[in-house]
Nucleic acid binder design. Structure first.
Length: 655
RNA sequence: GGCGGUGUAGCUCAGUGGUCAGAGCACUCGGUUCAUACCCGGGGUGUCACUGGUUCAAAUCCAGUCACCGCUACCA
């Protein structure tokens, strides 16, 4: 019988900067999942790669006075070195600059165009080069004209562009999401996407003429294909889509696309719609993991708080780092990183609990039984609870893994480790030895070794290097048949095994006294701060919801130029429920403004009215229409009413 | 503005109507000596955000309020 397959991917990373711990997190998770599936007998396939096109790379390469491809080659080499360091055992690494990818993207473009899903239009917008993203007026409002993502400068760009029709497939996509509750995870992301799709999808701009570092549009080479159509296609181009590659048949659709929460939309809206347009099946699951935060904030170059995994890998073992990443953080949520947290986690779980368990087990075997793991003899009253866990924990771990709850999978394994440490205390083998109860002693030592065997097998996907060390110390290196998932039943260690106690597999890491003192002080301060915050919340709750605004001076008020204006014309703004476009006149000067009053006034109600407007308000665009001022209106829960005057004519001051 | 989420021990979180509300870490006291100053046990930390309601019974259900977060927008 053919093995069941499992296809998992990470996003392809952009080579504009070195990778940080967050990229490592995603990739370690994918690698661990793949190793787990292989352990369970699956034909698992793991794809990662790099997204190498775009204006930003073109510019960076030019700045470095290099050919773009030479420029990215160097960076990609560093990616691969990092993955080697973390024992990332991918089956394929796709680069979007490889011919095998570019060919497929061109074919995909052509197919969509032949189908009528791509058309030529024009795009205008505020463009951030470094993020390769267009922003609408409203998106850059809060960031005051800067890029909301990176705070960089925006260019106003208008260019010819090909567009991909998205709305056409919106209903089908909604139905798919509805029919497949596990498609988007965690569910909070799912709700967001449903909400987003229901508001209507705009056609997606998929080409650029402003730079050339990309895949040319078939038949129109002054355009290059722009980011998402190019990048997303990697998940099928790597499998040889359109090339009669058996891997495509075998592995598509993907079982899991792992993505960061910032790119969920591209993977759960654009990508499925692309696949629908290509008549291909959709991936079974898109899982959005959280971010690793530093000091409660996102890592960023400008903040200087980027955690470099290469530096960590030189200080700590990569097995420990892999463990930490998947144990400390809840996979679907954000989590806080600090080196203290890392060290504490390694010391407590790996050094104290796991490493020390191996150490005391081998030490006692050598001391009391000449290093030999003897078959269990007489039972002790403490055995049952431990043996019970041997039966339940593998199942518990498996269930957590299916849900990508790595932290719970590890917590399950630690139940055995914790119980084994307690078991030793209860059974007190040193007393059994002293009292000559050799039979019971053999049982206890055997069970300890079994506990280690169970834990080690289950840890294999998480830690590629540690198991071999454990097997060596337990004397089981050559007993590979009892290192498998199927061997997770009690009593598999054969006779005649001799342990060989060795170095601590996870030495304790020292924390300086000062750091500890600082930690205590910090904890106390945190406690006080929390109390204060609670008090403050309570106080603000008691205060009226309608807080008075801070006092201003008459000069402040005088800055506002309030005028009476006559409404000349009014019409509804297309595709907007709330907006009316008005032409008004202030003392002979005509102006256009947009007001969000359509649900309370019809256009004809307004014509001829003398309203009050803020005449010196900075103009803004609403729905693409310039508004040169703002109409005053009073509102409450019941409704909204414009301020109007009867006798004073247009131009009159209001104060 | 709309939709959604969260608020439980110093920290990270579990707990969706029913014993005095839990785990791990941190803290503290005790035990043990096989072990990596480790392990085991005891202990305290809590108006389960607030207010009101339903119920014999609410962290859990309902209504409202506050705070924080996410997505989104046509509030100039």
């Amino acid at each position: 019988m053919a093995k069941p397959t499992f296809y998992i991917t990470t996003p392809i990373y952009y080579p504009s900067a070195t990778l940080h711990i967050g990229h490592c997190y995603t990739t370690v998770a994918a690698d661990t999942m793949t190793r787990y599936k292989k352990l369970r007998g699956y034909d698992a396939y793991f794809l990662t790669g790099s997204d190498e096109h775009g204006q930003k790379i073109e510019r960076s390469a030019a700045a470095a006075n290099m050919e773009p491809i030479k420029y990215v080659d160097k960076i990609i080499a560093s990616f691969k070195e990092l993955w080697r360091k973390f024992d990332i055992d991918y089956d394929d690494f796709i680069r979007t600059t490889e011919p095998r990818h570019e060919e497929v993207v061109a074919k995909v473009f052509q197919k969509l165009k032949d189908k009528g899903d791509i058309y030529l239009g024009a795009y205008e917008g505020h463009y951030c080069v470094s993020c390769e993203t267009f922003f609408t007026e409203s998106q850059i409002k809060e960031s005051q004209g800067k890029c909301p993502d990176c705070d960089g400068d925006l260019d106003m760009v208008k260019e010819e562009s090909y567009f991909f029709r998205m709305d056409k497939y919106a209903d089908r996509l909604l139905k798919y999401i509805d029919d497949n509750p596990d498609f988007i995870q965690p569910v909070s992301r799912r709700n967001e996407m449903i909400n987003f799709i229901k508001q209507g999808l705009e056609d997606l701009s998929i080409s650029r003429t402003t730079f050339s570092w990309g895949i040319p549009v078939p038949g129109d080479p002054k355009h290059v294909i722009y980011v998402w159509l190019d990048a997303l296609t990697n998940y099928i181009s790597a499998l040889g889509y359109t090339k009669d590659d058996p891997r495509f048949e075998r592995y598509w659709p993907a079982d899991v696309h792992l993505v960061g929460k910032d790119i969920v939309r591209f993977h759960t809206v654009i990508w499925p719609i692309m696949l629908m347009a290509l008549d291909l099946p959709l991936p079974k699951k898109v899982f959005a993991h959280g971010w690793i935060l530093v000091n409660e904030g996102k890592m960023s170059k400008s903040k200087g708080n980027v955690v470099d995994p290469m530096i960590l890998a030189d200080k700590y073992s990569t097995d420990a780092l892999r463990y930490f990443l998947l144990r400390e953080f809840i996979f679907g949520s954000d989590g806080n990183y600090s080196e203290d947290i890392l060290i504490n986690r390694i010391n407590v779980d790996l050094a104290n609990d796991f490493g020390n368990l191996l150490s005391r087990t081998t030490a006692m075997l050598e001391k009391f039984q000449d290093g030999e793991i003897l078959p269990p003899g007489e039972k002790t009253q403490y055995d049952d609870e431990l043996l019970e866990l041997f039966q339940t924990v593998p199942q518990e771990m498996a269930e957590a893994m299916e849900k990508l709850e790595f932290h719970n999978a590890l917590a399950a394994i630690w139940k055995i480790i914790g119980k084994a440490n307690k078991y030793i205390d209860e059974a007190a083998p040193w007393n059994l030895n002293k009292n000559g109860e050799k039979d019971k002693l053999a049982t206890v030592l055997y069970n300890m070794a079994e506990a280690l065997r169970f834990a080690t097998i289950m840890l294999t996907p998480f830690m590629p290097n540690t198991p071999a060390k454990v097997w060596a110390q337990l004397g089981l290196t050559n007993n590979q048949e009892i290192q498998t998932w199927d061997s997770l039943t009690y009593g598999k260690i054969p006779q005649g095994i001799k342990v060989a106690r060795g170095e601590a597999i996870f030495p304790r890491l020292e924390i300086s006294k000062e750091d500890e003192e600082a930690k205590k002080a910090e904890a106390a301060a945190a406690k006080a701060a929390k109390k204060a915050k609670k008090e403050a919340a309570r106080a603000s709750q008691k205060a009226k919801a309608e807080e008075p605004k801070p006092e201003i001076t008459i000069e402040d008020f005088a800055k506002i130029d309030l005028r009476v204006a006559k409404v000349l014309t009014a019409e509804k703004v297309e595709n907007a429920d709330k907006l009316l476009k008005l032409q008004i006149e202030i003392a002979g000067e005509k102006r256009q403004l947009v007001a969000g009053v359509a649900q309370h006034y019809s256009p004809e109600d307004l014509i001829g009215k003398n309203v009050v407007v803020v005449a010196n308000l900075k103009p803004a665009k609403l729905r693409g229409i310039e508004s040169q001022g703002m109409i005053l209106a009073a509102s409450d829960k019941e409704g909204l009413e414009l301020l109007t005057v009867d006798k004073i004519t247009s131009g009159g001051r209001v104060k």
